[in-house]
Design a protein around this nucleic acid. Structure first.
Lengths: 362, 362
DNA sequence: CTGAAAGCGCTAACAT
DNA sequence: ATGTTAGCGCTTTCAG
């Protein structure tokens, strides 16, 4: 009775036990209409008794599909990505797809590896938040071989035929800056991961980094300032690496700038915490002396004092939209790629107020 | 030139173009030693030119493995799980495995579905944070069919032959309570997702919920109180549903208890935010009038005022351990299941102080 | 309505 | 060192 098979009970076992051919067994299990109710019930019962588990790998071999989508992101513990992942998961599950997820730690080499491996595993489509600047051959390759691709959060230079789902970064910054300007601020500092020179004359360049969120947010800041007739001062643009600690240092620098800033706009969720801590430790009154705007709505934004005003991304909608766009692309390979630039929202709390107001005490 | 194949270029195409048999091509691509360097190089070159992508599905068909592990968790946007996921991902990637992840929204039916679907997709092993109380047939089934299984965060009643990786919840609570007792507190409240009557005489019962983290944390609180000769008062145990809002309400109730509590211990990360907000809004001075301990170390714990003292789980180690345990079980099916109860750590900040100390002002 | 046969792309004996 | 053959478990023509 020994059998070197990989699998305990196959459809052949079920067929034999039910006294039918494996084709009939297969049809019965698939709920095909052409099989008589009697034999179908019998087959199903026998399958249950035997503990038969269909083998999706074998099925994929034939159908050429895996009912699986891949997601490649820099980091899954990042709030933005974990929230996006959650809504992607929920959306695709409704369509009976599963999620193969790979995190790249922000490393281009790992991103390429992930995309290749998932492709090798024959995912039906891929959502990727690319990090690998200029080199996007691995993404272009996907569209060449006909794998559905949706870009999340940021575009990729060469992946022209992929859809993009992201917040409207330019407008997000405008929201923040206009709010501050409306309050009367004229000296507004910004903490950005982007290098000040990466967004020189706007955000329409074709440079590798020109369309990254941080670059666009910086560009949006510059544009909003300019449109309001305010001067964009290099000394008010603080570059920060992508960490809370770096942001702390950047904010500290900004607080010593001349002319002094009366407000700081923080362009990323991991940078917000560091900036807030720096402002707190500086002893400056917020919002009395310095206003602060964070990016992304955190659980803690209403918990700290002053409660933090933020520019919130529609994270959930972004995830849902990316998933739906991908499912649509899988269902219809001729579908044209679309760009979804979702609107951000300003959530006004207590960390922003008119400038020059002394601490009211108490 | 038309071909109804599912795949653009297969190993047969490569073989033909290279003028060898498909076995040789396969061996060359696999880097087998028995193939001459000359033909191997040639095959590899031709494969690259043709844009050949190996088909992992077909390979799995033969080997019976997928180099994929499944992870089933209640929610991936939850801080604890997203952090665990991240370290699981990193660990398995080093062993060239991929991650098929499914979130269950805390619904037992979805959990069963996820486990079955991933099993159908022939994952080599599964890490699950079970939620489905008494009904764990779907998990027992896995071990029956020989699929490696590791339980994360909480055990499952019937899945006896699976490893478990979790924090030591009893000791975690003892850490918190002993700290408070050491400061002089005698009236310590607790906010718990567990019903007070679920952990009556300790945590050694065999009831469905008896080993859930929340139950164990409550039991640990009761045990630590008792061991210190303090009275466990039902009025000081506030039950809360699993949400920040519910915890806010529970904390508010606790603040009105008689005799009054001088300290509150919060047993879960999502409950911590609500309790903190409630204490803040109550106008009570913390830690002057009431001390507070949260669970899990949040990004915001050092940002709020007072900075929050917490019991921190070794989230990263939990994820790594679960992944390694799973990989070991996959590699050696005869391996005996192990239980890893990792130690929690108390991070003392400013929200805990001796009781009865009036607000010092300023 | 059911069965027989072919084959998805690949690896793994078994030859040579 | 290379080629030939036989499947992995399943779906899907094609016959009946």
């Amino acid at each position: 009775m020994t059998r070197p098979a990989h699998q305990s009970v196959t459809i052949v076992d079920v067929a034999e036990a039910a006294g039918v051919s494996k084709s009939t067994a297969g049809r019965a299990l698939a709920g095909a209409a052409e099989v008589s109710a009697r034999t179908r019930d019998n087959v199903v019962r026998v399958a249950a008794e035997l503990g038969y588990r269909p083998n999706q790998v074998a099925r994929s071999m034939i159908t050429g599909t895996t009912e699986t989508v891949g997601v490649v992101i820099p980091e899954m513990s990042n709030r933005f990505f974990s929230a996006a992942l959650q809504s992607i998961a929920r959306t695709i599950r409704k369509h009976d797809y599963e999620l193969l997820v790979s995190s790249t730690e922000g490393e281009p080499a790992l991103e390429r590896r992930s995309v290749e491996v998932l492709s090798t595993k024959r995912v039906d489509g891929l959502i990727v938040a690319p990090v690998g600047g200029a080199d996007a051959d691995h993404l272009r390759r996907l569209t060449e071989i006909g794998t559905a691709l949706v870009l999340l959060d940021r575009p990729a230079p060469k992946a022209t035929s992929a859809s993009l789902v992201s917040v409207n970064n330019i407008e997000a910054s405008r929201l923040a800056v206009d709010h501050l300007i409306g309050l009367g601020h004229r000296h507004i500092g910004i903490i950005s991961e982007a290098r000040p020179d990466s967004a020189p004359a706007g955000a329409t360049e074709l440079e590798p980094t020109a369309h990254w969120p941080s670059t666009l947010r910086l560009a949006g800041y510059m544009r909003a300032m300019t449109d309001a007739g305010l001067t964009v001062r290099p000394g008010h643009i603080a570059h920060s690496a992508y960490s809370s600690a770096a942001s702390y240092a950047a904010a500290t620098r900004l607080l010593r700038a001349t002319p002094p800033v009366t407000a700081i706009y923080c362009t990323d969720n991991v940078l917000s915490a560091g900036a807030f801590a720096a402002l707190q430790d500086s002893g400056r009154d917020c919002p009395g002396e310095v206003s602060l705007i964070g990016f992304d709505d955190h659980e803690w934004a209403p918990l700290v004092r002053p409660r933090l005003t933020v520019v919130a991304q529609p994270t959930e909608v972004i995830g849902i939209t990316a998933a739906e766009e991908l499912l649509a692309a899988i269902a219809d390979p001729t579908r044209q790629p679309a760009t979804h630039l979702l609107p951000a929202r300003l959530i006004t709390r207590d960390s922003t107020a008119p400038p020059g107001r002394a601490a009211a005490g108490g």
